[in-house]
Simulated assay, not measured.
Amino acid sequence: MAAARDPYIEELRDLVSCSICLDHYEDPRILPCSHTFCFKCIQQCALNNGSFQCPFRDDSTVNTRDIYQLPINRAAKDMVELASKMSMFSLNPEQQQVKCDNCDQQRAVHWCEKCSSHYCDSCTKSVHSIKTLQSHSVVPLAEKASVFCTEHSDEKIKYWCARCQLPVCRDCLLFKHKDHQCISIQDAATRAKTELQVVLQDIDKREQQLGLELFEVNGIIEQQHATYRRAHSEIKKRFYAQHRSLEEEEKCIKKK
C-alpha cells in the first residue's frame, strides 16, 4: 500500500503555516529577525506578555505598541493565496461526511484509486493487508479533491481552467468551461511549481536584503552608541576640569 504525497505540496504547506497556531498564515507579518507569524498570533502573545519575543530564540523582541508597524510579508501572503487555489487547506462539508464504502459505518479518511473506494482507517488496513492489494495507491481523503472533480464525482481532474483558476474534468470542458482557456493539469502543476520557485527565490532575496539592512541599522546604532559614549566621556572630563578650576579659585579667594 503506497501513500502518494507530493513533496512540493508538503513543502508549500510548511512554508505557509504559522509556527504558533500551526494553521496557514492570516495577515502574515515579518519580524526584524526575518521570521514570519500571523498578526493575530503576534498580537495575542504581545497582549499576554507585554511584548512579543520570537519563539525561535533569536533575541528578537517587539514591544506591544510596535507590533502594528510590522511590515506585511507579501511573499508569504501570495503563497497562501496560491495554496488556497490548490485547495490544500481543508475538506468541504460534503467530503467530511463521506462514509467508508466497506463497513458503511465509520467516516472515511482514505481513498484508494485502484479500488475506487473510500475507506475508514481500520478498513484501509484490513482490505489492503491482502498481498495483491498492497501495491494500491491510497491517499488521505483530503487529497482526493485533487483527483476527482467536485461537480462530476466520477470524472478525474485532468485540466486547469486559466480563466476561473480551477481544476476541471473532461465534462467541465464540454459544458461549463467550454469556451475557457484550459491546459493539462500537469502543465498547470509545472507552472505552479515554477511560480513557487520564483516566490521562494524572492523570499531569499528579501531575506538577504533584510539581513543587509539589519546589518546597516545595527552599524548605525553602534555608531550612535559610540558617539554617545565619546560625548559622555568628554562632558565628564570637562565637568571635572571645570570643577577643579572652581575649587582652585575658591582656595585662592579664601587665602586672600
Score class of each variant (00 low, 15 high):
A241V: 13
A4E: 14
A75P: 05
K256A: 12
H136L: 01
A75E: 05
P55I: 07
C41G: 13
D58G: 05
A226L: 07
L200A: 08
C33K: 10
C45P: 09
Y240R: 12
C149R: 09
S84H: 09
C41A: 09
K176F: 11
Q69M: 01
K40D: 13
A145I: 08
I183D: 09
C161N: 10
P140F: 00
T150W: 08
W111E: 04
L210D: 02
A75H: 08
K156L: 03
I183Y: 10
L82N: 04
D179F: 15
I30P: 09
H128C: 03
Q95C: 09
E247T: 05
H128A: 02
K205L: 00
K193I: 02
K77H: 13
G211H: 09
S233F: 10
R74L: 03
E248I: 04
K99H: 07
K205Y: 00
Y8M: 12
K193M: 03
D14S: 10
V217Y: 08
K237C: 11
D78C: 13
Y8W: 12
N73Y: 09
L173V: 05
C18T: 04
L212I: 04
D101W: 14
N102M: 00
E248F: 03
R191G: 00
E195L: 12
L133S: 12
H136E: 02
V199Y: 10
K176I: 10
L70V: 01
S116W: 14
S126W: 14
D27Y: 06
K85F: 05
D171C: 06
P93H: 04
S153P: 08
Y159G: 01
D27A: 05
H136I: 01
L47V: 14
I157R: 11
L200C: 07
